[in-house]
Design a protein around this nucleic acid. Structure first.
Lengths: 206, 206
DNA sequence: GCTTGACAGACTTTACGAATACTGTAAAGT
DNA sequence: ACTTTACAGTATTCGTAAAGTCTGTCAAGC
């Protein structure tokens, strides 16, 4: 096998993407330069062009990798064994939305993702959908049959509402220049309320 | 009495404040000019200085008036007779946060209010507190004694969570350039979920 | 009680050429 | 599989100077 190649390739690629996202996050798409990214990743500028056709392709790949990673982390939080639903949901929403809260990136990555001008819908929308699906699945799994009949809302609706509330907590914390801790407090308060009405099955404490 | 004066004063003042808020909202504090505000309000620029010491005083007065008005509207929504709590809460949150959703004001008023650089905390914080209080009171009033004992969260916590969720709905609708209708759909979905667990008393339909 | 006109000083915008930086491509080297 | 060097064409930044705008204040007038 020409073995080491593809593995080393993968690691290097990942490192480049992580570095690139940091630079894009700090400076925004326009002001981030290929040269700065290359230097930060300790490769030549031309090395970047061997992996990515152009600046936009690199940016989109970095966003995709970041969303994959966040989705993976959030999924892991949701499937944690022996932890109550409420805690798992808070952890997952924090992994999904809280990453850059309080880090005062000049042009916040989360905002870039939502900005229609960036045309990232084809990358972001499926990731958001996947997150909502897993959140809904975790909620459904924790709901008893009884709950499912009794409640007027579906797990999907609960997941959407939690996602909306988490977005609000993030917005408020960002707008008021709060720390990630304060974000988590806001988030926890909202999640607690959503689950407060849903019986003991949802509030099992670890 | 030197009667007409003070009444006419009040009306004129209100008109000026409404116009000023529009101009501040469209252009932001810096780019909004006293001249533009004066012309839009059909008075002379110097007339403004007879009522307001300077640009900042005018801005703060306009913000105060806007918050008073929004708080008044929201309160009215909350005390509407013969309407279920859920609908009243949606209407109140829409009155409180939804006013400028979808109106593509260059520098959205809501964002100005949250921006610490604007130093509006002494005006905004009490108004936000008052809104939360009234929201909590409306929720408390609709909760049966039984509910109050059964639930693990207070009306105040529920109000805060609803407020956070509404902020999230607003952020998402703004970021994605959605209309106010779409904002209300998001908002309603979140409110429905929060109240879903809280028994029939909260979901009485009108 | 409000208007018009005028004014100083601070600040912003515009214009413009020179300097610099960036992207994307290519070729030669290790 | 990557690096270095080089290059064309374009975009961005920088320094500077002139023109313009804005705030806040004053005086005179109805």
């Amino acid at each position: 096998m020409t073995s080491g190649a593809s593995t080393a390739d993968g690691t290097r690629r990942e490192r480049v993407l992580a570095v690139a996202l940091g630079v894009f996050g700090r400076y925004g798409f326009r002001k981030a330069s290929m040269d700065e990214i290359a230097r930060s990743a300790d490769i030549s500028r031309q090395g970047l062009y061997l992996h990515f056709a152009n600046k936009e392709a690199l940016f989109r790949a970095a966003v995709r990798a970041e969303l994959d990673s966040a989705l993976h982390d959030a999924s892991r939080c949701l499937t944690e064994a022996r932890v109550g639903l409420e805690r798992r949901v808070v952890a997952a929403l924090d992994a999904w939305l809280g990453r850059y809260v309080g880090s005062m990136l000049a042009s916040d990555i989360g905002n870039m993702l939502q900005n229609p001008a960036m045309r990232l819908g084809d990358i972001v929308d499926p990731a958001v959908g996947a997150f909502d699906d897993r959140l809904a699945a975790a909620i459904a799994a924790a709901m008893s049959e009884k709950d499912r009949g009794r409640l007027a809302v579906t797990p999907e609706e609960i997941a959407m509402a939690l996602h909306t509330a988490a977005q609000g907590a993030k917005y408020l914390s960002n707008a008021r220049a709060e720390s990630r801790e304060e974000f988590i407090v806001r988030l926890t308060a909202a999640v607690r309320v959503v689950f407060a009405g849903f019986g003991a099955s949802a509030r099992r404490t670890p």
